[in-house]
Write a protein that binds this DNA or RNA. Structure first.
Lengths: 347, 347
DNA sequence: CTGAAAGCGCTAACAT
DNA sequence: ATGTTAGCGCTTTCAG
């Protein structure tokens, strides 16, 4: 391997000068710089990143939040509107506070998650924002070297990691109540897990289960009968959701409203309903969940439980930076984002 | 961060002994080992992978980044479908080749771009995928320390950086030709830059200009008169595109087809046309550009110039890894992705 | 059995 | 304008 020292020897200067030239510092005589660049070319010199990160250990420990910090965001998908928007907003919030954000996609793959946590925490970042997975808190702590970490939307009631939650129960409850309020009584729910039993359907630790739980609470409070047959499973993407409308057509034709567990599901469902000739909202009212930006431009525009995604971004970045900058011994917080019902054409 | 030294201090031994215990070497007294392990637990010690790899420089010179490769992707927006999808696909392609991908959003801000290139190239990554900006190639090379870099969709005809291009001219040409082929003659274009003159409108170095150029070529070849009044400016997002339909309503009512310069623009335009009571495709045919996944689920579904985004991801990752792994002196390549017209309901 | 020293490639801070 | 020193966390070597 060619090192700066080698280049320096070739050019008749020290490694330090090579470093200066290659990083574009202007404290080197043009003559010398030229000689150095030629030597580097000749020897095919390449900067060694490994030693750079070794170096950065030193820098980052002494820096302590002064200059440029980096926060990592590990998120399940990059090509879906909700996580994309969240990533973008986290990026912006972090920038306001002088931090850069690097994003990695986990694809909800445990192996990925593990190596991402390890790399991000140990090599790249001053702190990590980690979106929901089934890794144990203990494992996250261990892999991250007990570095500052904030969990997003992970409701396993562990109190030893900072967490920012989506208002799943309250939001779902509000959705059902809204549909009830506009006179709908045959309300279906779409976006559940394919469940083998009632318990797994409502697994309260995970997002899907928490939203179902919110629905049930609403049904009870409104005195409506809970009908599991009207809980339709589908993965949270528009293609599968559209397909589900076809698969569960008879169930859906029996409903006068559908609560879609995400806006992306709603997008696919609206398309599916078009396929089978049902009009939204006349034949069937649709309400989504998330409040993604494109909901406003759908045809019809989407009524939805609009989570304040900016609030999530802001609070999670705040929590994380607080832990990076300040005492690591602060008590752990668990906060829930706000939401409102965004009333549009679909319901 | 807790180091072996810290653990050693806690246990009353040297860092060396800690190292021996933690790696399971049997040359430590059981008593001591126990004490060390307890101290490590108490302080939440974890082996620091960074310094391990630094160390490995010394041990084996032949490491050459195989085991832990990381590539960086700097992209303009994270909350728009096209860049999100690209990021996701790059991530997947890189993973197939044993590389992790970290993504940063530039928001087309030069300051951001500069610091992202600097940080990513020098601290995080073995190579950088950089999507279109106005930074000079020279500046990119300098900031990145001449590390492996592949440009995405940057057509400044510089030959000294690997580049993967979207088929802007050919795709736009195909779009116009398609609209002509289905009998439309009053074709408008939406998504241009607000231009002060014809030249800036067609600035051939940038994506928008290249698509306009493709349109002009098609108009000429089809013997249609080029009418600049039918070129409508709008930023590339659905909200502004929808608004533009209202602002340019009279122009649009005079058209029987619109080429939308991106699918996201098309999404907003379709919504805008709904607002003003125009039917797609009866009153006006719509064709988009990009081939984002959600186009298939829009109402109506979107006919579009479907760029093979997977092809872009694959080729850019290939190019980059080739340059990371192999000789850095390979000739620079400039490749263009493939596309096809995806025929759906909107045209 | 235990630990001191050296050194991996690089660069901030200081010296010349 | 250029060089010297020190040190990032760890492990190999070798001396106690």
């Amino acid at each position: 391997m060619v090192t700066m020292k080698d280049v320096g020897r070739e050019a008749g200067v020290s490694a330090m000068t090579v470093s200066n030239v290659l990083r574009g510092n202007d404290n080197v005589a043009p003559e010398t710089a030229k000689r150095v660049r030629e030597a580097a070319d000749k020897l095919h010199y390449r900067l060694n990143t490994t030693s750079l990160s070794a170096r950065s250990l030193r820098v980052s420990t002494s820096r302590r939040g002064k200059e440029f910090g980096t926060i990592g965001l590990a998120i399940f998908e990059l090509d879906q509107p909700y996580p994309s928007q969240l990533a973008s907003l986290v990026s912006i919030e972090a920038e306001k506070r002088g931090y850069q954000t690097v994003v990695q996609q986990t694809r909800i793959n445990e192996l990925n998650e593990r190596s991402i946590i390890e790399r991000m925490s140990n090599q790249f970042c001053d702190g990590l924002l980690f979106s929901s997975s089934r890794l144990s808190a203990y494992e996250i702590e261990t892999l991250s070297n007990h570095r500052p970490t904030v969990l997003l939307d992970d409701d396993r009631r562990q109190t030893d990691i900072d967490t920012v939650l989506t208002p799943c129960e309250a939001g779902a409850q509000a959705a059902i109540t809204y549909l009830h309020g506009i006179g709908r009584r045959r309300i279906g729910i779409i976006g559940a897990n394919p469940a083998v039993n009632e318990v797994s359907l409502e697994d309260s630790r995970i997002t899907k289960g928490r939203r179902i739980t919110g629905c049930r609470i609403a049904f009870e409070e409104l005195g409506m009968t809970w009908n599991p047959a009207r809980v339709i499973p589908t993965p949270w993407n528009n293609v599968d959701a559209r397909q589900a409308v076809h698969t569960y057509e008879s169930t859906i034709r029996d409903c006068d409203a559908l609560f879609c567990m995400t806006d992306t599901v709603a997008f696919g469902v609206i398309r599916g309903l078009k396929d089978i000739g049902l009009d939204v909202p006349r034949d069937i009212a649709i309400i989504g969940f998330d409040g993604i930006a494109m909901g406003a431009s759908m045809v019809p525009s989407l009524t939805t439980v609009a989570v304040d995604i900016e609030d999530i971004a802001r609070r999670s970045v705040d929590l994380l930076i607080r832990r990076i900058d300040d005492e690591p011994n602060l008590p752990h917080q668990r906060v829930t984002a706000t939401f409102h019902i965004e009333r549009r054409e679909s319901a």
